[in-house]
Amino acid sequence: MASDPFRSRWAWILAIVTLLVASTAAVGVWETVDAPEASPTFETDIADIQASMGVMTGLRETTIERDEETVRTVEQVWRRPGKGKYRIEDVGGTASDSVLKVSDGRTLWLYDSADGRVVQINLNGSATADSPSRIERLLTTLNRRSADEPARSSEISPLPVVPSEGGQAASTAGVAGSLTVSYEGTATVANRSTYVFELSSNANTTAFVSGFSQTLWLDQEWYVPLKRVTDYRRGDRNVSITVGYETVSFDSEIDHGQFRFDPPAGVALTTTERPRQLHFADRAGLQAASSFSLPDPSLADSFRLVDATWTVGHRVRSLGLQYANATARVTISKSNLTWYEPTTEGQPVNLGDQEAALRNLGTELRISWVCDGARYSVAGTGVSAEQLIEIARSVACE
């Protein structure tokens, strides 16, 4: 049976929406980076800054290179950062598919005019999470560091490598956690003044994702990423991804009807729900909402609970517990995804009565297993494999 390219694109975009990771990205006109005399003090209330920004518009280009294969996409973008509102129209490039993406913060529409098909994704009344919190953590880390202090590993995640509203699939699964972060100076992108930062992983070169680095250009006024270049090796393939704006403007006066979409008559319409994720301040709140019993991991006293989540979708029920101390982060998840089979090979480990698999996914180690109709996962950054195995044994089959 022939594959359905629209369904493949929809599946990938929906997967990204499900992960609740979105960003404002950018590539294009830029100049040589000017080396810094000293690191400035950066603003860290990014959400408040962007709340007064209005509409951002621009021409965005994405280039994905995998060894000898190159795919280029050019899009016209309208966005309200922090509001979950955007409109993205393909206007050029070499990609074979073209899907209009429109979100008003409550509903995301994906329209393929060539196939005459529309997917409507209900966002459960909440806008998709944006990137300011990641940027705030990066800038807070740099503000704490003295100008003459060398770069060091920090508990910071890279920004998504491609715009999560659409575009070509380019997963860097497992790339998150401890990265070396440094301020590199200033440069001009799309006629805007930017700060330039370098993030790089010191992960073991035998990891599934290795050699990870990301250079990020942030607008000096609005702290929106105006360019990012991401390089890594995935398995036996080199990957380089450049995303950015050739032109960009802020506070543009536009018709806000740009963020609405009315399906044309006669198109095939599919409706689905984005899994809803709830966050809780403590275990008690999560337990009250969850249909699963909560794992109670054995961790060092320095760890504290920093996030507790319950995710519910059409086929998904999943809880998450995230713990952190000054140098490490551990996440425990429990879900009904017993049918899921990871694509990466793992090392067998024994958890008492349970057989599990340990995987090195880059800067993250993960142990997963299935027990009594639930899938468990214990992931960690800044901890050794031996430490993670002991934590997994304390969870076992709770």
Rank of each mutant, 00 (worst) to 15 (best):
G373V: 05
Y183I: 00
E390T: 15
G116Y: 00
A356G: 08
E345I: 10
P163V: 11
L159P: 02
I254Y: 08
A265G: 12
R152K: 14
E355L: 12
F280P: 02
L19P: 00
K85T: 04
R317L: 11
E355K: 15
G177M: 04
L269T: 09
R276Q: 10
P342Y: 07
T73P: 01
N360G: 11
D353C: 10
Y195H: 12
R134L: 10
I46A: 04
G266I: 00
T270P: 03
G211H: 09
A326E: 12
T70D: 02
I367M: 07
T271N: 12
V175E: 12
A392N: 05
P150C: 08
Y245M: 10
V77C: 10
E198T: 11
V196G: 00
W369C: 01
G177D: 03
T247N: 08
G167K: 06
A47K: 12
F208G: 03
F212I: 03
R366L: 10
G177W: 03
T311Q: 11
V119D: 03
S368A: 14
A35H: 13
I156V: 15
S98Q: 11
G285W: 07
S23M: 09
L159T: 01
S201V: 00
A379I: 01
Q76R: 13
T309Y: 00
L218Q: 01
L110M: 13
I16V: 14
T247S: 13
K83S: 14
L269S: 05
Q322R: 15
V21K: 12
G362Q: 01
S126W: 00
V395Q: 01
E61T: 13
V21D: 11
T215H: 09
D90M: 06
S8L: 15
F42E: 05
A328L: 08
F42M: 01
P275R: 07
R134Y: 02
T57K: 12
L321C: 05
M53N: 03
L361Q: 09
A127F: 05
R317C: 06
S171V: 08
V239K: 05
E355F: 00
D115R: 14
D372T: 13
A281M: 09
E390C: 11
V17Y: 14
L20E: 14
P160L: 07
G352R: 09
Q214C: 09
Q258K: 12
V77D: 01
Q287P: 01
E43K: 13
V243E: 13
T180V: 12
T70Y: 10
V370R: 14
V267C: 07
E136H: 06
D262T: 15
S182P: 02
V161Q: 13
A326H: 11
T57N: 07
A38E: 12
P36D: 01
A95F: 09
A288R: 15
S298M: 10
E149Y: 11
R79C: 04
V267W: 10
Q220W: 06
S368M: 07
S200N: 09
E89N: 08
R72D: 00
P158T: 04
N204E: 06
W78K: 08
F261W: 04
Y195G: 02
T172L: 08
